[in-house]
Nucleic acid binder design. Structure first.
Lengths: 260, 260
DNA sequence: CGGTCCCTTGATATTCATCAATATCAGTGG
DNA sequence: CCACTGATATTGATGAATATCAAGGGACCG
């Protein structure tokens, strides 16, 4: 999509790539000087783009690095005791995965790409050393992890309290917002994950997700075409996601002609 | 319960309390020398015990400190958009709360005690400074945050995939394990939270929780008496929590005499 | 001892999962 | 380019799990 398909090993480009990366304020927002970015840059390994459905790491893998998404998208998931997968999150450019593995040296989740995806591997031992040498980097790391905890908490609320409608609306709003922050359109985008993945993530059956897309389209909230989504009424969608519950359900019912 | 009700301001006791705290290997497990513990100790404020239902911080409060539980227990929760509370976690001695507030300077959740509770306040600015001076402390902080992310992920699986039975069994197992790690009995303990809190946390109605306690007791898994729980069959409970789903449900059904 | 909150239990309603049957799409190879 | 194939998505009919509603019983606090 926005892939500048990389020439084989262009050293000049690779050097100091963080400085030029359009995402550097997402993965390293604040207070890191140019010199320090250079030092960070030297420990980061830019990997050639991964194909769709490639694994970045698997549950149980030894923990060595965290990874920043540069382009594309990724899902992370764990295994339930019965072998099914539970998707933990969808990650977009500028976001960092693998942070859950630090504490015990092995990845407690797997990560695989949802489309062609470029990532930066950041060897954690070196990152820790650098964090000692560059205090602001250490603070930034802690801040990023804090944000991850916080966003997990939001997801808990979604799964614990929200209806199916609210869940899907929340996901769409989240994607919309995050894509916008990355310079894409907030109103029109491509869903890189399957309906199955969406259902899994939201704790819903595929069929429910499918029906919701249909219903949302019928009441004029969105236009869906396979993986392409256009949000027609952002405010209303936000309203549903934010869960003015009674009102939203009523609206949807009336429009579908459902009656009880 | 296990409260050594503290004399008013015993300076000798307070000084270097971390070294003597039976929890110090829980909140600061590894690689911190005695000198360093002393330095950490100096920035920590030990607060007088809080009464049941006291707030430690509230959603929106400015972020200044994280808090370690010394004795008692705490729940943290956020507000859903409709004003209801969603409980994020129950915290036991040696665990740390407030980590979700680091990234934007304000608490995104509230915390209140479930019973008489003692906490240590750790001013975060000073902790960060100390983390720079003592690299192993910084690493430890990152590790603790990683564990928090990981345990949130487990909860996501619980809410996304598990049945009501599995959820309650999982909670009981989690409490059992954590209490055991703190030197208490794994098989017999006191639930400091209300049925309401349990239901809220697990994404279930109070009534469902109540019925589950009854059913678990009927099939000989546990004995419940108000807030007192004794686990009679730890292995079976673990089995249900781990979700050998079909088998567990069948067992419970047969025993309750339910038939379809 | 009375009030209030919390918990339990039963009856009913609702949401969403499951099952089943197409329909559509993305590759693949002829 | 088209037909074939498996994966993915939609749609409908049914059922199960759990929420909700309603009422009564205990426990705890003053």
């Amino acid at each position: 999509m926005n892939d500048c398909s990389p020439k084989p090993l262009d050293l000049a480009m690779l050097r100091l790539a963080c400085q030029n990366c359009s995402l550097h304020e997402l993965c390293l927002p604040v207070g890191i000087g140019l010199d320090d970015v250079g030092r960070l840059d030297q420990i980061i390994k830019r990997k050639r783009p991964l194909a769709r459905a490639d694994h970045i790491f698997r549950l149980g893998d030894e923990f060595r690095s965290v990874y920043a998404i540069r382009a594309g998208s990724v899902k992370t998931y764990t295994m339930t005791e019965t072998g099914g997968e539970q998707i933990i999150g969808f990650y977009l450019p500028g976001e960092i995965i693998g942070l859950d593995a630090i504490h015990n040296g092995a990845h407690p989740s797997s990560a695989r790409t949802l489309e062609t995806t470029s990532i930066c591997e950041i060897p954690f031992a070196q990152l820790e050393d650098l964090a000692v040498a560059i205090p602001s980097l250490g603070r930034q790391l802690v801040r990023i992890m804090s944000r991850e905890i916080h966003s997990d908490d939001d997801l808990l609320t979604l799964l614990g309290k929200k209806s199916a409608e609210e869940r899907l609306a929340s996901l769409l709003m989240s994607l919309s917002l995050r894509l916008q922050q990355r310079g894409f359109s907030a109103r029109e985008f491509h869903l890189s994950m399957s309906r199955n993945d969406i259902g899994n993530y939201l704790g819903l059956a595929v069929e429910t997700v499918s029906r919701l897309f249909t219903r949302f389209q019928q009441i004029g909230l969105i236009t869906v075409n396979n993986k392409h989504v256009r949000i027609e009424d952002l405010a209303a969608l936000r309203e549903i996601a934010g869960a003015n519950r009674g009102a939203a359900c009523t609206a949807a019912r009336a429009a579908t002609g459902a009656s009880h």
